[in-house]
Amino acid sequence: MPKGSPELTASRKEEIVNACERLYRTMSFKEITIKEIGAVTSFTRTSIYNYFQTKEEIFLALMQREYENWASEMDSIADMNETMSAGEFADSMAHSLEKHQQLLKLLAMNHYDMEENSRPERLTEFKVAYGASLDAVRACIRKFFPKIDDESFIFVFFPFLFGVYPYSVATEKQLTAMREANIGFRMHSIYEIIYSCVLQLLGGKS
């Protein structure tokens, strides 16, 4: 790690993660390289290696940030409401994840690669953020739905998130293939998929 203030280090890391996020909106995981990321930062490409050793570590940091932000939103839902119906909670959770499409995309496509090709300390930092999201959702379930087994909810809901992106976003090539294969399938929005799942896990009543 280069010498410098903690603020400078945090700022540089944030700039790198932001650059990666921008590229990922229009490029695939395989297409993005550290060279590509360096080209859209304000410092030299080789400087990136002072902060991240692999591109997978950069993507893992992006997913970590997404989990941290989502956990904060779930904490706010718990803090700002005394009670919630199943429908109200499903609506709030669906809207919160709708804003984190990048998280759902990363979960669906490159989760294993990011973890496998990151240093243990970077992986631990990520797992702390992931754990915070588990705790935030668990706290909501315990507060608003004490009769629901919060561990059973977690056990179903978090693995479910890995499949949300492919069922809500498809390329024209994929859509054409489904039409030609005569698959009677309609794409659903992230909101629709999350809302339906949460409502069912809470008993199916709004």
Rank of each mutant, 00 (worst) to 15 (best):
K3Y: 07
A10W: 12
R12Y: 07
E14P: 06
E14W: 07
E15L: 06
I16R: 02
N18D: 14
N18G: 05
E21C: 09
Y24L: 14
S28L: 02
S28A: 08
E31G: 04
I32R: 08
I34S: 08
I37C: 01
T41I: 06
F52L: 00
F52H: 03
Q53V: 01
K55V: 01
K55T: 01
E56I: 00
E57G: 00
F59E: 00
F59M: 13
F59Q: 03
M63K: 12
Q64D: 12
Q64R: 14
E66R: 07
A71S: 13
E73A: 09
A78H: 09
A78T: 11
M84G: 01
G87Y: 02
D91K: 10
S92G: 07
S92K: 14
M93V: 13
L97G: 03
K99I: 00
H100N: 11
Q101R: 09
Q101M: 13
Q102N: 08
L103N: 03
L106F: 14
M109W: 10
H111N: 05
Y112K: 09
D113M: 07
S118W: 02
R119I: 02
P120N: 09
E121W: 10
K127F: 06
V128D: 01
G131M: 08
F144V: 10
F145W: 00
F145G: 01
K147C: 11
K147R: 15
D149R: 10
D150A: 15
E151N: 12
I154R: 09
I154P: 13
V156L: 08
F157V: 05
F158V: 02
F162D: 11
V164N: 07
Y165K: 04
T171R: 12
K173I: 14
L175Q: 10
T176Q: 13
T176F: 08
M178C: 10
R179M: 14
A181T: 04
M187K: 13
I190H: 03
S196R: 13
C197I: 11
V198M: 00
L199I: 02
Q200S: 14
L202N: 04
